[in-house]
């Protein structure tokens, strides 16, 4: 079982993950249309690029946009959650050990303690995001079972990873479950709204170009996010 989930299944999920995201990106860009979107992507592009960079930067920097600033608690939660989600799996010592064994290279790593803190941070912030979903009427009305499923898919690798790493219970069982959860997440990303790991950037670039080329960027007004 262990050999299967760390062998062919891992390969498969990685292929689906990368190919899926490449497909999503290409498909998105191909579907942009000057006249349907009413943005001349190909004319005055420089204005668009400038504005697109701003559009992304203001939103990936904590408190970089007015929207982030007026909702500080939510912003802190979102950033802790996302930073943990991205950093932990990529720079985890255990993952890099496997990477080195398999493919002979490794990335710089964070310490096990940092990884632990980040894992807990992801789980706790997810918990608060779920509470927020239930508590605030304006978020509750938007919420469906799908949103909880997505959250589960995202957080499950962290919970199972934490349990297996600390050998809280049957290691063999939890580590296989952890790997499976990770693979489910990788496979789910291109097919669900988790695809926003690329579509977030594409969408922000698009709206940045829209404002930069058409809606004021060329008048020097420039959108302030």
């Amino acid at each position: 079982m262990y050999d299967f989930v760390t062998g062919p299944l891992l390969w498969l999920s990685l292929i689906i993950f990368f190919a899926g995201l490449i497909f999503r990106t290409v498909y998105y860009i191909k579907g942009l249309d000057t006249f349907l979107d009413r943005v001349t992507y190909g004319v005055n592009t420089a204005y668009g690029v400038k504005s697109a960079i701003k559009s992304v930067l203001h939103w990936i920097i904590p408190f970089g946009s007015r929207s982030w600033r007026v909702k500080p608690i939510f912003t802190i939660l979102v950033f802790i959650f996302h930073i943990g989600l991205v950093i932990t799996p990529i720079f985890l010592p255990a993952h890099n050990l496997i990477l080195e064994e398999r493919w002979g290279f490794r990335l710089p790593t964070i310490s096990d303690t940092t990884a632990d803190i980040m894992t807990i941070a992801v789980i706790v912030s997810a918990l608060f995001l779920i509470i927020r979903r239930i508590a605030l009427p304006e978020v509750r009305i938007l919420t469906s079972a799908y949103d909880y499923l997505i959250m589960l898919i995202t957080v499950a690798p962290f919970i199972t990873g934490f349990i297996s790493f600390h050998q809280i219970s049957d290691y063999q069982f939890w580590v296989i479950l952890h790997i499976l959860c990770g693979e489910i997440m990788l496979i789910a990303i291109p097919f669900t709204k988790l695809s926003h790991i690329v579509l977030f950037f594409l969408s922000r670039i698009q709206i940045g170009m829209d404002f930069g080329i058409k809606r004021g960027g060329m008048k020097g007004g420039g959108k302030t996010w």
């Binding site: 191909k30 349907l36 929207s67 909702k71 979903r133 978020v139 949103d147 709204k193 695809s195």
Partner: peptide, 23 residues
């Protein structure tokens, strides 16, 4: 014919976060 990349993506990736409410 007309619901392409950007509109489709907007409908699909909306995180249901409610940040737009107060706007």
């Amino acid at each position: 014919k007309t619901l392409k990349s950007r509109l489709k993506t907007w409908l699909e990736v909306c995180a249901h976060c409610g940040l737009c409410a107060d706007s």
